[in-house]
């Protein structure tokens, strides 16, 4: 049982980190459009043969 003295603070630190990351993601606008981003990959797949993308990432 004594291991809880270490494990619980560690889990709390992780929770704080998760909430911090979540705030960062929401405030950065990553959740602004919940519909579109999931579908974008479907379109790109079809468009590629017509217009070859440049090697740079355009995320």
């Amino acid at each position: 049982m004594e291991s809880l003295y270490f494990l619980i603070p560690i889990s709390m630190a992780f929770v704080a980190l998760a909430i911090g990351l979540y705030f960062w993601a929401v405030k950065g606008g990553q959740y602004d459009d919940l519909e579109l981003e999931g579908k974008r990959i479907l379109f790109e797949q079809e468009a590629k043969p017509q217009a070859p993308q440049q090697p740079e990432d355009q995320a």
Partner: peptide
Amino acid sequence: WQAQQKTALLRVGVAGISMMQ
């Protein structure tokens, strides 16, 4: 409106993460 939506999403997320713990 957009600021409000963001705050609402933050609140849902915080409630969700804390609820699970």
